[in-house]
Design a protein around this nucleic acid. Structure first.
Length: 581
RNA sequence: GCGCCCGUGGCUCAAUUGGAUAGAGCGUCUGGCUACGGACCAGGAGGUUAGGGGUUCGAAUCCCUUCGGGCGUGCCA
């Protein structure tokens, strides 16, 4: 069953054909949610656009559309307003019927997607930290946004490949392996696991020696050669370093409740020769200053000359242009992706535009949709790149711990009667949820100013506000002594109060919002909706007594559905809910 | 220099992609507790959407231009 917006659009489209024949065929129905609730629930803006084409008066056209508009079963009589807006208000009995359907629908009205075919396969490339370094604030947005988009895709029924394109290959491994051989030679023997401790400190030690000691530098260079030629000891050292890093990454991903599968840069190494050979055969490779280049059209460097993707460096080595070309080819050819989504910072927009253009030129892309999902930087409150007071990059671990610590302090103050274990649980869910929500609720593309105080604020458009709405619903259920999951369609009688009607429509908008999030790859569409729904619920809660009221059962059903939408919506953001806080 | 992105109340942000009188939150001011959890609700004040020009029934949104900021601009990712 399609969502309400879809039904209204369909009806308007039919009316356009009925009113204007062939002229109305394929015309945009121009139906949107009402810009203001005083205009009803949905509005059609088609008449104004048509007026130009048909050289007629927009209000007259609106009248003709309304004459052919068959919506009596879902709306009150449409009204024409202003220059030619057609406003529609949903009937209460229609809303009631839809709510009854939802009570028996565990997908809350959200259909499995048919747009990309029954079983579309989507690659979501996100997070992507570097081995032997650390997840820091620069990885926050990619990780959180990528996870959210992946969750939405999964919910819509796509087979989703969550890919961590970690930086696990490159010249920096020379110095790391050389340092490993000195500091921890036992790591290179086949036996037990070793613990290098803080891998980042290890990296810094190696870097220091590399910068200060010429002979070490030379050894590092030789280790790179060994590694690339597959020499056993070097490979072993590399694996040890990767394992250590992986373990530290996993701690953060667990804390964030994020699943992701690592397929790092090294994974694509075996596919590089074929990739280059194919590009060569296609005549796309040009040698320049000893490097092998592909020149997609339309990109210029600062001298106005064509800008290349360098797929093999002068020294024979490979870089991220190479890997990304091999990776996109692999994802299309081997993994049969229908859609590939790259969640990286906006600064890489040109790079991906070039990769996509080159892949198109090579004939790899075909019907596959490759899309870069850019996002802005995380800024400090001084509007400069977010750093610690001492100028260091902020570690994700520290940031998350701080969020949990602060929310713990708030729980201790607000709800000291909760036991220790519960308060820890609340602190974790609210703290992590607040960090995620603050990020996802921003328009992706703009830079965003990081502030603990604002994200953990207990009011406003924040995670705690929504979780609180959910908690209050659970509290009502406890008060009444009912399991909200046991309500059935028969438990909804009629909708009476304005707050009930608003809440009903809010609940029923969920599917159209999910569709928009998926289409626009814009998580903030979902956060805006959930905030709106929470506010609508709070108004309902204030004005409409549930427990003990004659309308208790219907209202409980509204509460149950609100809770389910909140829980599902928040879970798509990667945020958990609580029964008490 | 060139390319891309951005500029919206004091602050942080929306605006369903060209729709109606530009909406929220924070802060501020006023009101509401016989509490289904006040981490709440109702209301007020606060805007020339950086400036200017254009396109059209209609522009924060599209085009041109000026100013301001960020990022990118061949062997880092």
């Amino acid at each position: 069953m399609s969502h309400i917006l879809g039904v209204v659009k369909q009806r308007v489209s039919e009316a356009l054909v009925a009113a204007f024949g062939a002229n109305g065929q394929g015309m945009d129905s121009a139906v949107t949610p009402a810009t203001d609730s005083k205009f009803g629930h949905y509005q059609c803006n088609a008449a104004m656009g048509l007026a130009r084409v048909l050289k007629s008066n927009p209000r007259a056209i609106a009248t003709r559309i309304v004459e052919d508009l068959k919506v009596g079963d879902i709306c009150e009589a449409p009204e024409i307003a202003g220059p030619g807006f057609i406003n529609m208000t949903l009937r209460k009995d229609f809303l009631t019927g839809r709510l009854r359907d939802l009570l028996g629908d565990d997908r809350l009205g959200v259909p499995l997607d048919g747009a990309h075919g029954a079983a579309a396969r989507v690659v979501v490339d996100f997070s992507s930290p570097n081995i032997a370094k650390e997840l820091h604030v620069g990885h926050l947005r990619s990780t959180i946004i990528g996870d959210c988009l992946a969750r939405v895709m999964e919910f819509r029924g796509h087979e989703t490949l969550r890919r961590n394109h970690v930086g696990d290959w490159g010249t920096q491994f020379g110095m790391l392996i050389a340092h490993l051989k000195d500091r921890c030679p036992e790591a290179l023997t086949e036996t037990s696991e070793v613990d290098l401790g803080d891998i980042v400190a290890f990296y810094k030690e190696a870097k220091k020696r590399f910068d200060e000691d010429e002979s070490f530098k030379e050894r590092a260079r030789l280790e790179v050669v060994s590694l690339q030629s597959g020499e056993t000891e070097a490979i072993r050292g590399w694996q040890v370093l990767c394992d250590q890093s992986r373990r530290q990454f996993q701690e953060i991903y667990s804390l964030l409740d994020i699943e992701i599968e690592e397929k790092g840069e090294s994974f694509y190494n075996p596919f590089i020769p074929d990739t280059l050979e194919e590009l060569e055969k296609l005549g796309l490779i040009v040698e320049s200053d000893g490097a092998l280049c592909v020149y997609p059209e339309g990109f210029k460097n600062k001298d106005g000359d064509p800008l290349p993707l360098i797929v093999r460096k002068r020294d024979g080595g490979f870089n991220y242009d190479t890997t990304d070309m091999a990776a996109i080819r692999y994802r299309i050819r081997e993994e049969k992706a229908d859609r590939i989504v790259y969640v990286t910072d906006a600064g890489q927009a040109q790079h991906f535009a070039m990769i996509f253009s080159a892949a198109e030129k090579a004939g790899w892309l075909g019907d596959v949709e490759a899309v870069h999902v850019p996002f802005g930087m995380v800024l400090g409150e001084d509007r400069k790149k977010f750093k610690t007071r001492s100028g260091e990059t902020v570690r994700l671990r520290d940031l998350l711990d701080e969020a949990v610590r602060r929310s713990r302090a708030i729980v201790d103050e607000k709800n000291p009667e909760l036991d220790e274990v519960t308060r820890d649980q609340v602190a974790r869910v609210v703290g992590i949820g607040a960090v995620k929500y603050a990020d996802l609720s921003q328009n992706r593309i703009s830079d965003y100013v990081f502030s603990f105080d604002k994200m953990l604020a207990l009011q406003g458009n924040t995670a705690p506000y929504m979780i609180y709405a959910y908690v209050r619903i659970q509290s009502i259920a406890r008060k009444v002594g009912i399991d909200l999951t046991t309500l059935t369609p028969d438990d909804i009688a009629t909708l009476e109060t304005p707050e009930e009607v608003d809440l009903a429509h809010g609940i029923l908008r969920f599917p159209e919002v999910i569709e928009a999030v998926e289409r626009e790859l814009a998580p903030n569409r979902l956060t805006d909706y959930l905030f709106d729904l929470s506010q609508t619920f709070s108004r309902f809660y204030t004005e409409n007594r549930v427990a003990g009221d004659p309308r208790e059962t219907t209202r409980l059903a509204l509460c149950a559905l609100t809770a389910r939408v909140l829980r599902k919506g928040l879970s798509l953001l990667g945020i958990q809910v609580l029964d008490q806080m």
